[in-house]
Design a protein around this nucleic acid. Structure first.
Lengths: 353, 353
DNA sequence: ACTGGCAGGCAACGGATAAGAGTGCTAAAG
DNA sequence: CTTTAGCACTCTTATCCGTTGCCTGCCAGT
């Protein structure tokens, strides 16, 4: 029953609603989009679309608004990934071309760009801690009061922690401690490090003088290491979305954004009322009540992947957001792999200026 | 004409308003606080207090609300710093006792605790970059693809940056580059490093192969180093303050909190409409329109200091917030200095060799 | 199969009204 | 001279219409 005309009308409704955030009526739609059907015809089709679940009314005699199912249908079938904003392209390119010595910084910068250009909140989630194993711990002495500990994983990912010395703790003691950890914790999954520490405690107690302090310091470091990296930019931007003038909605979303643990984001699709779609390009769209989350993964090494995401109201310009996100993710991926593969083989380069 | 009775009434009004967030009237005040004066007397005194500028009305026939000047007076004269919350004491103690190997983590944790216990947003600002000079840059090799660069200042403060290698950049090249920076940038103030880099560019161009990439990488690192560290915890908590149900107020405050540069916080007292007070303990209170910022400094080394701050509506429990903040700041200060001086010793000059 | 026309529903807006809380003032009492 | 009681007044808030305008749903006509 989904005739081409109904699809045309549906798309027009979604596009219009995305622009205005107001329920759209048959007559206004006909006029604004110069549809060659009478408002009565449009009304009939609207009714049919409502019965199919793609549209809904805010009250009995109001205009129509896309439902979650409607957005889902739209993103599955009507998305036209075409125009990547020129400004966006330039901004991301410049962020990557020259920062290329530090991936974290580059990811942060692209989040900021994404947030700025979509006027919503953008974020990044690092590779899962459970997929990595501890390879080696290195210790570097800065001076007699500070040193740096570097945790290296089997995938080449590194994490650092500064140690600030109290007089009672000797450098020798710390070295000792790390030697033990290196023998006992090699090849342990990152997310299991905190648990494993407990088993090592008695060994440390014997061999290390300041075992208590060092033990807790390392446990804390491991807990932090094990908790997935998550970063958000432009959390305040959602304040400017009209759907979040309702403070109670805002509170829920803000609590999620401020939470800072990746868990809730990873298990997004399992939430109540969650509706999800994956596009051909691999972009994941998830709707939960009033908010939409658009995610794209990028590979950082074999088996490991991070995610870029944009969070906003259901009503957003999906065309734009999806293509931006893909562009950013591709750029990051190229950067990660640029030094492993040959630079010359760029497979998909569609546009240039 | 500030009679003891008027002060008593004033204090009762502030306390009541802090609790209820509603304008307080004469009759209700009399009953709730069992004041031995009739409501008419209270009314007269309220009128006087309003003329003095300590109270204001939301409309001609409403109850009274403390004005900014009123809060100022309250904090200058009526603050009773007594009860430090037992829960708070335990929480902060445990945060410090055992994390004591990394000050940044400890500061972050105490911000979280402060935010949680005040139900407002808490933050920390690191020492000013302008007061520190670059002492030395150290380079540590992690593997053939990663290394770590450590910037050490004259005050012993360190900052690290990870470098991720592309094949074209050689480790030797980077070493070379850092040697040059070490000779040319020693004793330069941190906040001037980015500018100074421009002058070194020609030298790098000659001596370093990948000068462009390395140049930008270091400039970015220095810019980040030079921008003061600022950290906030619990930004979403202000959503729960009734005064910020007004979205426009919320937007302004959120923009400030999300901004992330310390400049606006450092120059807080110079803002429009800003009113400021410093208590005997050194706590700084600043009011700007509807928001109040409570700050306490803590010394990290000679001449350098960081700040802890709490941001919330004007209407807050100043007694509680001020004492918590002071407690937290003292604890951090003790931790910083605990290893340089004797734990029990008093603070006098200290020289190193 | 589409369109024009018409009745009905609902929200949004504005004015009118009533209730409630609190002040300001005045005159009397301490 | 200070404090109190009483009363009139002001202003907000909530509620209740009636009007307006938009939009749908349906039916009859093309």
């Amino acid at each position: 029953m989904l005739t081409p005309r109904r699809i045309e009308i549906f798309k027009a409704i979604v596009d219009e609603y995305i622009k205005t955030a107001q329920p759209v009526g048959s007559k206004a739609l006909q006029q604004k989009y110069h549809l060659p059907y009478s408002s009565a015809t449009i009304r009939n089709d609207m009714q049919a679309l409502e019965e199919m679940g793609y549209l809904e009314k805010t009250h009995t005699s109001s205009g129509r608004v896309p439902s979650t199912a409607g957005y889902k249908f739209y993103c599955e079938n009507l998305l036209n990934e075409a125009q990547i904003d020129k400004k966006m392209e330039v901004a991301i390119k410049s962020a990557f071309d020259l920062t290329s010595m530090n991936i974290d910084d580059a990811v942060h910068e692209s989040c900021q760009i994404l947030s700025e250009m979509t006027n919503m909140t953008a974020g990044a989630i690092g590779p899962e801690a459970s997929s990595q194993k501890l390879e080696h711990i290195k210790l570097f002495e800065i001076d007699n009061r500070n040193c740096i500990c570097v945790f290296i994983t089997n995938t080449g990912h590194t994490e650092t922690k500064k140690f600030y010395f109290e007089d009672e703790v000797s450098f020798k003691d710390l070295e000792n401690c790390i030697d033990i950890l290196n023998t006992k914790l090699k090849d342990v999954a990152i997310d299991q490090l905190p648990d494993r520490m407990e088993a090592i405690r008695p060994i440390l107690n014997e061999a290390v003088v300041q075992h208590d302090v060092l033990f807790t310091a390392f446990v804390k470091a491991f807990v932090k290491f094990a908790s997935d990296n998550i970063y958000f930019s432009g959390k305040d931007r959602i304040l400017y979305q009209p759907e979040f003038e309702d403070i109670t909605k805002l509170k829920k979303l803000m609590a999620l954004l401020e939470d800072g643990t990746a868990r809730s984001w990873k298990q997004l699709d399992a939430s109540d009322n969650a509706v999800a779609v994956t596009t051909q390009q691999g972009t994941q769209l998830t709707w939960i009540n009033d908010v939409a989350v658009v995610r794209t993964s990028f590979n950082v090494s074999e088996g490991e992947q991070g995610q870029l995401l944009v969070v906003g109201p259901r009503r957003m310009n999906y065309d734009k957001v999806v293509s931006m996100l893909n562009y950013a993710a591709h750029t990051i991926e190229n950067m990660y792999n640029g030094n492993k593969k040959d630079k010359g083989g760029d497979d998909s380069d569609e546009s240039d200026g």
